[in-house]
Design a protein around this nucleic acid. Structure first.
Lengths: 205, 205
DNA sequence: TGTACATCAGTGAACGCGCGTTCACTGATGTAC
DNA sequence: TGTACATCAGTGAACGCGCGTTCACTGATGTAC
């Protein structure tokens, strides 16, 4: 696994990590194939032994991100069980935690412009991630009287949008947007108000 | 105003519009100074008669975007008066309408990476836009009993985040994210649930 | 009204740069016998 | 265990490209007299 002279050992992963670092430091535009190669201690041409090109490298970084993301969400969901409410809240917190802990992956996934339909693998893993949130929403919506129950996919879309908005606007060292509150609190309280609006939390709780 | 041979007439604005078109078509990365100049029918060097450089051009596009944005939000707020609720809902709708109608500006403002603190003018106009939403939230929070009233700035941050999330995830021809619902409906219903959670809309309405 | 002149918005050529990508190559590694 | 050989991950030089930026220039415009 360690570098052993001529052959790198694990160049493929080293390139992905260099790319993620670059993205984290300089934004989605800041990543170049040449610079990533340089950081991995290798000639730019070596990249082509492992990837089809620049786009392919970012796509793989994003794919790994979705994989982690889906795992993290699934874990949060599971550990919040058997309460539908706590499982749902845990996934919300996990969303923000993921964005904080894996900023490079997050940017590669959501801000780099690569399409989730680029490859079947990418589409599959992003669908898996989305399904966790939808499942959590569906469980929870069982507790809403059927006649006033919104579609679970709408409700998970609301939470997803809120989470993504909080990340983009307040959790990033964003363009001058000073966060008025810690993003975690903002998301937590926003979800709280939302769930109360659905009648899933008591009015005084 | 019309092109009159050697002198362009209104090159400065023509460059900004070319830049906005490019951004709209190809994303924040898709804009190059040279291509914008070409579209305006002019040599790249001519750009330097009107802007300090590439960044300065984008920043000016963003500034004009914030100006329009603030106006649109203000107009929505005013026309929803005197009801605090309808004023608030109108600003929410205006947010999405702005993102739809002025995609180039929106991207320049929120996705191009330019900081709002780049110039005092930019900081001022973005603060003006933000203030409209905060005012609408503050008006509305008058209707919440003081002891359970969240800070108006938190509440406007929630709505801003939700709106931004809806735009980024569902209103853009986003990376394979097929919108499960029309973004307008999604935002409207999301805000509805949220306001119900604050006790500002009756439970059956 | 006509002429001389200052202004300045544009040209066009040139620059250095880093990019992504290609290619023939080389030398380390692992395997067959 | 030792040798011959196939594999293939890396090199390094080269490419064409478009980028942002600079510079001395030119010629259209507007103004003073």
């Amino acid at each position: 696994m360690a570098k052993r002279g001529y052959h790198h050992g694990n160049l493929r992963q080293a390139l992905i990590e260099a790319a993620l670092d670059l993205i984290t430091e300089k934004g989605p535009t800041g990543f170049t194939l040449s610079e990533a190669a340089k950081r991995a201690g290798v000639t730019p041409a070596a990249v082509y032994r492992h990837f089809e090109g620049r786009e392919d490298l970012i796509a793989e970084a994003a794919r790994q991100g979705y994989e982690i993301f889906a795992d993290v969400m699934q874990y949060a969901y599971d550990s919040g069980q058997p309460s539908a409410l706590s499982a749902f809240e845990a996934t919300g917190r996990a969303y923000l935690a993921f964005a904080r802990k894996y900023p490079g992956h997050y940017i590669a996934m959501f801000e780099s412009g690569i399409s989730v339909n680029r490859t079947p693998e990418l589409a599959a893993v992003s669908a898996r991630a989305r399904r966790v949130l939808e499942q959590a929403a569906a469980d929870l919506s069982q507790h809403i009287p059927p006649e006033k129950r919104p579609p679970a996919s709408m409700f998970s879309a609301h939470i997803w949008a809120l989470s993504h908005g909080v990340v983009e606007l307040f959790a990033r060292n964003s363009p001058g947007t000073v966060a008025p509150f810690p993003p975690e609190d903002l998301l937590e309280s926003g979800i709280g108000v939302y769930l109360r609006g659905l009648g899933l939390i008591g009015p005084d709780q």
